[in-house]
Simulated assay, not measured.
Amino acid sequence: MRTIPLAHQQTLTLALPAILMGIINVTPDSFSDGGLWQQAESAVAQGVRLAGEGAAILDIGGESTRPGSSPVDADEEIRRIVPVIQGLRRATSLPLSVDTMKAKVARAALEAGAAVVNDVWGFQFDPDIAQVAADYGAACVLMHNRRDIDPAADMIAEVKDFWARSIDLALRAGVRPEQILLDPGFGFGKTPEQNLQLVHHLPELMSLNCPILLGVSRKSTIGRITRQAVAAERIPGTLAAGLYGVQQGAAVLRVHDVAAHRQALQVWQAIADVSLPP
Rank of each mutant, 00 (worst) to 15 (best):
F125E: 10
A134C: 10
V116W: 08
V132W: 00
A114K: 04
T100W: 08
R66M: 12
S93F: 10
V82G: 04
Y136I: 02
L94F: 13
D150Y: 12
V82E: 00
D75N: 11
P71H: 14
S69R: 05
V105Q: 00
P83Q: 04
A134G: 11
L94E: 12
R89Q: 15
G68N: 11
T100Q: 07
A133Y: 00
S97H: 03
A108V: 04
A108L: 01
P95W: 11
Q86V: 07
R66Q: 13
P71Q: 14
V105P: 00
V82A: 02
G68Y: 10
S70G: 01
I85V: 15
G122N: 10
D128N: 02
R89F: 04
N118H: 01
I85T: 09
A139C: 12
S64Y: 04
T92M: 09
V84S: 03
V82W: 02
W121I: 09
Q131N: 01
L88T: 08
D128L: 02
H144K: 08
A114L: 05
R90N: 15
A108F: 01
M101T: 12
I85D: 09
L110P: 05
G87H: 11
V120G: 04
A114Q: 05
V105L: 01
D135G: 07
I78S: 01
N118L: 00
A103Y: 00
L94S: 13
L96Y: 10
R89V: 13
I129H: 06
I81F: 07
L94P: 13
I85C: 09
T65Y: 05
T65H: 05
D148C: 07
L96R: 07
P67G: 09
R90W: 08
G122T: 04
A106T: 00
S69G: 10
V120S: 09
D126F: 08
I78W: 02
Q86D: 11
V141G: 14
A138Y: 00
P95L: 12
D150H: 15
I149A: 12
V120F: 11
G113M: 06
D75L: 13
D135T: 07
D148W: 06
R89K: 15
M143Q: 15
E111F: 01
P127Q: 05
Q124G: 10
A114S: 08
P95T: 14
G113N: 04
M101G: 12
R147T: 11
Y136T: 04
V98S: 05
L88A: 04
L142M: 05
H144Q: 12
V120E: 03
G137T: 00
L88H: 09
V82L: 03
A139G: 15
I129P: 07
V132Y: 00
E76R: 11
G68L: 11
T100A: 10
E76A: 14
P67E: 14
V72T: 11
G68V: 13
V82K: 03
G113H: 06
P67H: 14
Q131I: 01
V72Y: 06
G137P: 07
A139K: 12
